[in-house]
């Protein structure tokens, strides 16, 4: 009887420590943050004042918030294109044996390397590459007679966001390629052979077998990419701190600036709540799509 009871409660005992940590450091603070967003308060004063949804009204009326949201959305869309679509295609090409094993390993390593660099290093490296006139990009443009295309890449409102987004793609696409390669290699090779015998070209094999074969991985990686795009903070903060003139502001930097620079913590909590609900919605879509499988 005692052994039976132990067997029943044993799984809960194993789960309890991690559940306790999750509640303490994730769910409770998230809930507390929502409560904070209903108050006007400062991190340097004890008093706080209940303002209801005022922080949200102010947030939705803020041009910076909408600009940040659009930037996050742009970040997500471009990340999906590079880190999901391009990564899948490149992974399929590498796995398909178009290159010999030596060249394939070289490409895989070369694509993967940026992902192991710290974001600060990447940010500083690309600041140098983007330097006007003396940076690598401008040097290349000048060398090829395309100086008319030269920009102050991180200093102009028109180019700054795309410039930072492309750095992120440079850093993470290789990582996604490796993950997709693993997923593609798990597809049985006789499916490809069977389709080859049916007369399918490599492109048809890609669409008939590879794409459906990695559907689940694609879905999860796409969701992770979107999560990352709406939570992004570090690369923006290192490279532009949201500038110039809030042109590269994202929700993460807007929240950080509100909390720790402008000391409007209730407002920052409202931004955090919005980020939470956006990622929650994306997560719900993921669960729904996976259930459909």
């Amino acid at each position: 009887m005692k052994a039976q009871t132990m067997r029943r409660i044993a799984p809960y005992l194993f789960l309890f420590p991690s559940l306790l940590l999750l509640i303490s450091f994730v769910y409770a603070p998230a809930l507390e943050n929502m409560v904070y967003s209903l108050f006007s308060w400062s991190s340097v004063r004890i008093e706080s004042r209940f303002v209801g949804l005022d922080n949200y009204r102010e947030l939705f009326a803020s041009q910076i918030f909408w600009r940040a949201l659009v930037n996050n959305a742009l970040y997500a869309v471009i990340s999906i294109v590079f880190q999901v679509f391009f990564a899948l295609v490149i992974a399929a090409v590498l796995v398909a044996g178009v290159f010999g094993p030596l060249l394939r390993n070289f490409f895989r390593t070369a694509f993967f390397l940026p992902s192991i660099l710290p974001v600060t290093v990447v940010g500083l490296l690309w600041q140098l590459i983007y330097q006007p006139t003396i940076g690598l990009i401008d040097q290349l443009l000048f060398a090829t007679g395309l100086q008319s295309l030269s920009h102050v890449w991180l200093g102009e409102e028109a180019t700054v966001m795309m410039s930072v987004i492309m750095v992120s793609q440079w850093q993470w696409t290789g990582y996604m390629i490796v993950l997709f390669m693993v997923a593609i290699q798990a597809i049985p090779s006789d499916l490809y052979e069977a389709l080859r015998m049916e007369g399918a070209s490599r492109i048809q094999q890609f669409f008939y077998i590879t794409v459906p074969g990695v559907r689940e991985s694609t879905l999860i990686l796409a969701i992770i990419t979107i999560f990352g795009a709406f939570k992004v903070f570090d690369i923006i903060w290192v490279m532009t701190a949201g500038g110039p003139n809030n042109a590269s502001e994202v929700l993460g930097t807007h929240m950080y600036r509100s909390a720790f620079r402008n000391d409007v913590s209730g407002y920052a909590a409202a931004v955090a709540t919005v980020i939470f609900f956006i990622t929650l919605a994306v997560g719900a879509v993921q669960i729904r799509l996976q259930r459909q499988d």
Partner: peptide, 11 residues
């Protein structure tokens, strides 16, 4: 050809 594993497309 009929394969040992059947090689049916699961989707």
């Amino acid at each position: 050809m009929v394969f040992q594993s059947y090689a049916l497309y699961p989707h």
